[in-house]
Design a binder for these strands. Structure first.
Length: 878
RNA sequence: GGGAGCAUAGCUCAGCUGGUUCAGAGCACCUGCCUUACAAGCAGGGGGUCCGCGGUUCGAACCCGUGUGCUCCCA
């Protein structure tokens, strides 16, 4: 077979993904092996693969694939989230393009369109995850609005309502005027905004022409003012307390009240109070029994209650009212002002605080045990710093606004009769039965109840995810739930710690009395080179599918993993993508080199000169395997990948392969060849979880494999403790080679110029062992031992061995050699002084641990020996 | 306003409980090589007052305090 020049990722990706999937490697059924389970954070059905998904899902796939290789029964459950606000917005927009208005459509019809949309576009992101190589069990794909899932959500609502934890009430909520729905606190994003602070005069109700000036950033809410408030200690306004002012333009007479909530320094120290449109004003209103005048409609226009500007948008009104106040001579001044504004996470509309009747879930009771679970590490957070964030939120948890004024989602299972009676039940029938039992007379004349129009917050379904993907609602005792739950590791972004992680822990504890997962690994946030968060709105997220197509899934996985330490943000750098694809190419070429030797295999050859290389590489593999195991335990995935990368590129390709490489056109011992293949396939195995396609492809090109012999399922062996002696000798050999090559370079020797190498050493055995390698690596035609300096040769020192390089082509610069040696001696002497200082320090000798003292003593003897060697060499040079 | 975190080579980051010759990697840079696996490569090299200041310690990139700059989360 003719091997291509470079690794061809597209073909390999298609071929191997289909093969793995068709071989059933992604599916799982309970058996007697220990399970390793991950539930995928369900992306929004509206979602398109972005960098965050790539990072998150690469991490999950790596953990899964590695666990599979270690004998676990692995399961990765995929799915999508119905994402009520985002999806409904998409469907409404799609309808608008067709000239259809959602408002003129019955609910059923809208839902039909929404489901059609979901069926058509809803699976795109999962297909994209396949391209990335995700080894999820697609037969278990779950959607948060599946029939069974829907029922679970309804059941949870009803049960919590029965416990009194879910209730209906009027409170201040975050209103999204664009989506026309309430939002939870978590769905509001606070951003800095450049605003203006307007100083407006309010006429005091007295005989004099006195005015009170207030500062406000929201003059459009003036029609909703029902008081002006000042601080009780404020001398400026003491005489006005108890009096009234007239609200500008509409001339409503409102009281001047006092409260120590007021900040004396801010503005004029006088605050206009608009209880309907500000949470703080609302609380003031409750305290002082103020009237609440809601001057806004659901779409952000002013309502009849405002009296003025009715039907105009709030931001238009802001401009208009400023002009009108100026004209009326009531505007004192305007100044620039930077403040924090709340925006809707989904629609980016400026949030309007608004009093509204909504459904609420009391979180206090559920939060307490959920807090303990994390504080006691029953659920481990990685990195642990997020425990603080979690504790802070759980300690100050507020009731959760769970109703949304949308249609796409689980409809709230509450029904009303005409007299305001409320019936919460799992089904329409049950609700009506309750109604008939409670109010038989009314039910006789008005038999049909009206169901609540609202749906539940998306997160009110997501929090059941780890339970319900295993069918908790229908069969709480089922085998799968018992086997796979609690799941092993949740991989997610820190930004949804409250939205989702905390609530899953609460749900698991409340409904199953079990935590949902053992560990949570928080990935970083993906940022662009300027440090900005990658987001659709900024348009700074690269096109992942294009990247996969151009560079390959393995290179993409490499690039996102190589620089993403746990919990630290990842600055995405295109350079890493290049590094990843170069790495694929390097591995491909190493394979080509090995395959090229296949036909040159010969039996009965003397292998002894290759033993050193083989044993050393085996030891390195064992050493790195152990390192990777430790790193993976701590979720240090990027470190693990770096370590393996370096093992393959440097140790295997740059050293080992060169060491066992046969001469031009020379045969290679069959056993040496076999060993090289065996080593390479085990290296590929170590790398496979990170870069699955290229490793599987090369694994299969290396040898013909039997059916079922695939890297993805090959089990990782335990290589035991590496041979420390040979590792040390390997390092020495590398130092020797580098030192001689450096000398060759410095003396302008061409690669083809041969040298003779004379060694003065106490360890001849070592040189005998590596003589063959050394001579080839430094292009020495002869290596021999001497007991004294060789005249006319270049002299260097490695460790405590003296080397003499005889090179006829070189112009020998004795002064340069001497200078170099003198420099080394000076350095070592300086070093020796500091070591001596330590060893001569009584307090150091008394306090330092024995092994530290031992190390210092060894440093001293090594340095002394090396100085001696260098001085001898220097003396010979004259 | 409350909380979390960061500051190490030109860039992006490692450096795990303070002690293996006052720091490692990749990219970038310099020198030399088209050596039939790989120029998407090979060999070699240079480059750091570990943010400033103070402290603890026999010993600090690492611990403590403080200042400066930056990021994120929550209100």
């Amino acid at each position: 077979m003719e091997l291509s020049k470079n690794f061809q990722h597209s073909d390999a990706e298609k071929k191997w993904y289909a093969h793995w999937n068709n071989s059933g490697y992604f599916t799982s059924k309970p058996d007697n092996r220990p399970p390793y389970t991950i539930v995928m954070p369900p992306p929004n059905v509206t979602g398109v693969l972005h960098m965050g998904h790539a990072l998150n899902n690469s991490v999950q796939d790596i953990l899964l694939r590695r666990a599979k290789m270690k004998g676990f029964n692995t399961l990765w459950v995929p799915g999508t989230d119905h994402a009520s606000i985002a999806t409904e917005a998409k469907v409404v927009a799609m309808l608008r393009e067709k000239g259809i208005d959602k408002k003129k459509m019955p609910r059923d019809e809208f839902m039909k369109y929404a489901w059609e949309w979901k069926e058509k576009y809803g699976g795109i992101i999962l297909k994209q995850l396949e391209k990335l190589g995700c080894s999820a069990d697609w037969s278990r794909t779950t959607f948060t609005m599946d029939e069974g899932y829907y029922a679970a959500v309804i059941r949870v609502f009803v049960e919590l309502h029965e416990k009194g934890l879910i209730y209906r009430g009027v409170k201040m909520i975050n209103w999204d005027p664009k989506a026309k729905t309430a939002l939870s606190d978590e769905e509001v994003v606070h951003k800095q905004a450049n605003s203006k602070l307007y100083y407006v005069r309010y006429k005091v109700d007295s005989d004099t022409e006195e005015y009170l000036t207030v500062a406000t950033s929201r003059p459009e809410t003036i029609p909703g003012d029902t008081a002006v408030c000042v601080h009780p200690d404020d001398e400026r306004y003491k005489h006005l307390v108890g009096k009234y002012v007239f609200v500008p333009l509409i001339n409503r007479r409102v009281p001047i009240i006092v409260d120590d909530y007021i900040d004396l320094e801010f503005g004029t120290g006088a605050l206009k109070v608009t209880p309907a449109h500000d949470i703080n004003d609302y609380n003031l209103g409750l305290k002082h029994n103020l009237e609440v005048i809601d001057t806004l409609n659901d779409d952000g226009t002013l309502s009849e209650a405002a009296q003025l500007y009715v039907g105009m948008d709030r931001f238009v009104v802001r401009k208009k009212i400023v002009e009108d106040l100026r004209d009326a001579g009531l505007m004192v001044k305007e100044e620039d002002y930077v403040n924090q504004l709340g925006y809707s996470e989904r629609t980016d509309a400026v949030i309007e605080p608004k009093l509204s009747m909504q459904w609420w879930c009391n979180m206090q009771e559920m939060a307490k045990p959920a807090l303990d679970i994390v504080m006691k590490d029953e659920v481990e957070f990685h990195p642990a710093k997020f425990k603080n964030t979690y504790r802070h939120w759980m300690g100050n948890i507020k009731d959760w606004c769970i109703s949304r004024q949308l249609w796409w989602g689980q409809r709230i299972p509450a029904w009303y009769d005409s007299k305001g009676g409320l019936y919460v039940a799992k089904t329409n029938e049950e609700a009506h039965a309750k109604y008939k039992a409670a109010k038989p007379e009314l039910a006789a004349t008005e038999p049909v109840l009206r169901q609540d129009d609202d749906v539940l917050d998306t997160w009110f379904s997501s929090w059941l995810w780890p339970m319900q993907v295993f069918n908790w609602n229908e069969a709480p005792d089922n085998e799968e739930l018992k086997y796979y739950y609690p799941t092993s590791t949740l991989v997610t972004a820190p930004e949804i710690i409250f939205f989702w992680v905390a609530r899953m822990i609460m749900a698991g504890d409340t409904f199953m009395d079990k935590k949902p997962f053992d560990k949570v690994y928080f990935t970083g946030i993906v940022r662009d080179k300027q440090g900005r968060k990658m987001s659709k709105s900024l348009g700074n997220s690269p096109d992942l599918l294009q990247m996969i197509e151009d560079s390959g899934a393995d290179a993409v996985r490499f690039s996102v993993m190589i620089s993403s330490p746990a919990g630290n943000d990842l600055l995405f750098d295109e350079g890493h993508l290049e590094q990843g694809s170069f790495f694929c190419n390097k591995m491909w070429n190493a394979m080509k080199l090995l395959k090229g030797w296949e036909s040159r295999c010969a039996t009965g050859m003397d292998d002894s000169k290759h033993l050193f290389a083989i044993n050393w590489m085996e030891a390195r593999l064992a050493q790195v395997s152990a390192e990777v195991e430790d790193l993976m335990k701590d979720f240090r995935l990027s470190e693990a990948l770096k370590t393996i990368y370096s093992l393959i590129w440097n140790d295997f390709c740059s050293w080992y392969l060169e060491w066992v490489k046969p001469g031009m056109e020379q045969p290679i011992s069959a056993t040496v060849y076999e060993h090289a293949i065996s080593l390479y396939e085990r290296l590929l195995q170590l790398l496979h979880p990170y870069m699955p396609f290229v490793t599987e492809e090369i694994y299969h090109v290396l040898r013909d494999r039997e059916e079922g012999d695939d890297l993805i399922v090959r089990q990782l062996p335990d290589y035991g403790t590496p041979d420390a002696a040979i590792l040390k000798e390997g390092t020495m050999l590398q130092e020797l080679i580098t030192a001689v090559r450096d000398t060759r370079n410095k003396n302008q020797l061409k690669p083809k110029d041969t040298i003779k190498l004379w060694v003065q050493t106490a360890d001849k055995d070592f040189y005998t062992k590596v003589q063959d390698i050394l001579s080839r690596q430094v292009n020495a035609e002869e290596i021999g031992f001497v007991t004294e300096a060789v005249s006319g040769a270049i002299s260097i020192v490695v460790e405590t061995d003296k080397l003499y390089i005889e090179a006829p082509e070189a112009t020998i610069d004795t002064e340069a050699q001497k200078a170099q040696m003198q420099k080394d001696i000076d350095y070592l002497k300086g070093f020796l002084v500091s070591v001596d200082k330590k060893l001569g320090n009584e307090r150091f000798m008394a306090n330092a641990k024995p092994h530290v003292i031992e190390a210092e003593e060894k440093k001293k003897s090594d340095a002394l020996a090396k100085i001696k060697t260098l001085e001898e060499s220097l003396a010979v040079l004259g």
